[in-house]
Amino acid sequence: MDRLSSYITLASRKTILLVTATLITLTLIFTFSASIRESSIQLWQQQQLDSQRNNDCIANTATVHELPVEKLKWDQCLSPTSERETYLSIVIVSRMDDYAGNQHHRLQNFIDSAYLLAEHSQTTIELLIVEWNPPSDRRRVVDSFRFRHSNYLTYRVITVPNGIHEALPNRGNSPLHEFEGKNVGIRFARGEFIVCTNQDDIWSHNFLNAVKSRVFEKNVIYLQRQDHHNIHDPLPPSIVRLPAFADDDVLFNACKLGDQDWGHYQLPKPLKVTTENILKVADQAGDFTMAHRETWKVPRGYREAGGVAWMDIEFICTAAWTFDIPVVYDENGFACHQDHQNIWEFNTEQHTDNKDIDMGEIMRKEKIYMNEEGKWALQDVDIWDLKLECQEFQGGLCW
């Protein structure tokens, strides 16, 4: 009986030890697993932060404009210089209330066209979107569109808040100032050359070839021929009708405008701009005006009068006649316009009042129309205090 009791006691002890060892092992496994899981989460979070610091992508596009902003990082985002040289800055002005009439898919096509331009030319390009006076009840631009990653393309979104918008002259209570916004883009652009365009355009094979051929020079204004926007069926070559969210092949080949000798694009010689040809030469200049970054600053950008039309033509008058900057007008065309109803012509109360401007007086150098030195592109506004925003990123998804 004593021997049996000893066996039972020994067995009980072994069982207790086994159970204890099992519990200890399970506890260690659980603790180790939790530690690994926590470390993995911390590593993922750190990768997201590092990704954003390195401008690879933005992990949460919905709230990026609500995050605290460091003054140093803000200054770096707005700096007109960067670690790598940028050949071309593409500047547009937009906002998310569909102010231009069914604009959203056209803007996505435009963004994708910039991506294709960078990829096919293998040229360092930045797409600089000036988001003007964003509506409080809409998503921001950066949270509404696809920005694909390219080693050649950098994206920047500079947001001009309502407080700045309300402080500026405004004809017809327009929600957006196109030319003031383009001036902001010109001020902060990093490209050697800056092209001011609109969100309705896509790039032609001619422009791709011209970029690849490096044909552009300093101290020249570059313009293109483009058909009027109010021409519809049958569409002329420079007005295209694209499906929403066109694929790359459709988008890339929608605006050829001619055969190419790749790498050997030829520009025409500068022409003499006169009052007889100014309306032809500068017509649709809002869709394409290009110059070296220093050349843009000579006429001090577009004159800021609070209107939404005519300032593109006036800029050409000032550049060509007040400052004798040569103008190259390419009949072949650098961009195509996506077809849509022209709503600007119906909003005449928002147009700049130019009835008292005599272009002959500008040509004869009798009158000058331009911004005051230091009082354009928000240079006389405390943009930090008034909460101008800036995001810089390379595109792609943070997965």
Rank of each mutant, 00 (worst) to 15 (best):
151 N>V: 06
129 I>R: 00
109 N>R: 08
131 E>A: 04
151 N>R: 14
101 G>T: 07
100 A>P: 01
92 I>L: 11
167 A>R: 01
95 R>A: 12
113 S>C: 08
148 R>Y: 04
88 L>G: 04
121 S>E: 10
74 W>N: 01
129 I>F: 06
124 T>P: 14
93 V>R: 04
99 Y>C: 01
141 V>H: 13
146 R>T: 12
82 S>P: 02
84 R>Y: 04
148 R>I: 00
136 S>Q: 14
137 D>R: 11
143 D>E: 15
147 F>M: 01
166 E>F: 03
82 S>F: 02
97 D>F: 04
94 S>I: 00
131 E>N: 01
169 P>H: 13
150 S>Q: 07
123 T>W: 03
98 D>R: 08
109 N>W: 03
125 I>C: 00
79 S>M: 04
129 I>A: 00
114 A>S: 12
112 D>V: 04
78 L>W: 02
135 P>A: 05
112 D>P: 02
131 E>T: 02
134 P>Q: 12
157 V>W: 03
141 V>I: 15
83 E>H: 12
141 V>E: 09
120 H>N: 12
103 Q>A: 07
167 A>Q: 09
144 S>Q: 11
112 D>G: 05
81 T>G: 08
133 N>W: 14
154 T>H: 13
166 E>S: 15
117 L>S: 04
123 T>D: 00
77 C>Y: 06
116 L>F: 00
145 F>K: 12
117 L>C: 04
84 R>F: 08
129 I>Y: 00
126 E>T: 01
128 L>N: 08
114 A>N: 09
165 H>C: 07
171 R>Q: 14
130 V>C: 06
165 H>N: 14
143 D>Q: 04
130 V>M: 08
125 I>Y: 00
104 H>V: 06
114 A>T: 14
140 R>H: 15
164 I>Q: 02
114 A>H: 04
74 W>A: 01
159 T>M: 15
169 P>V: 08
168 L>Q: 01
79 S>G: 09
118 A>G: 13
78 L>E: 12
89 S>Y: 13
139 R>Y: 10
84 R>I: 04
75 D>T: 09
118 A>E: 07
75 D>K: 13
132 W>K: 00
127 L>M: 10
124 T>K: 15
108 Q>N: 08
167 A>K: 00
128 L>K: 07
112 D>C: 03
172 G>C: 01
151 N>C: 03
139 R>W: 10
148 R>E: 09
92 I>W: 02
111 I>L: 15
162 N>L: 12
121 S>Y: 03
87 Y>V: 10
138 R>V: 07
109 N>P: 15
123 T>S: 13
155 Y>M: 06
104 H>R: 12
118 A>S: 13
114 A>I: 09
117 L>G: 05
134 P>S: 09
118 A>F: 10
87 Y>N: 05
106 R>W: 03
132 W>H: 00
120 H>R: 10
83 E>G: 13
168 L>M: 02
132 W>Q: 01
134 P>H: 10
136 S>L: 12
89 S>N: 06
145 F>E: 05
98 D>N: 15
100 A>V: 05
128 L>T: 11
94 S>A: 14
90 I>G: 07
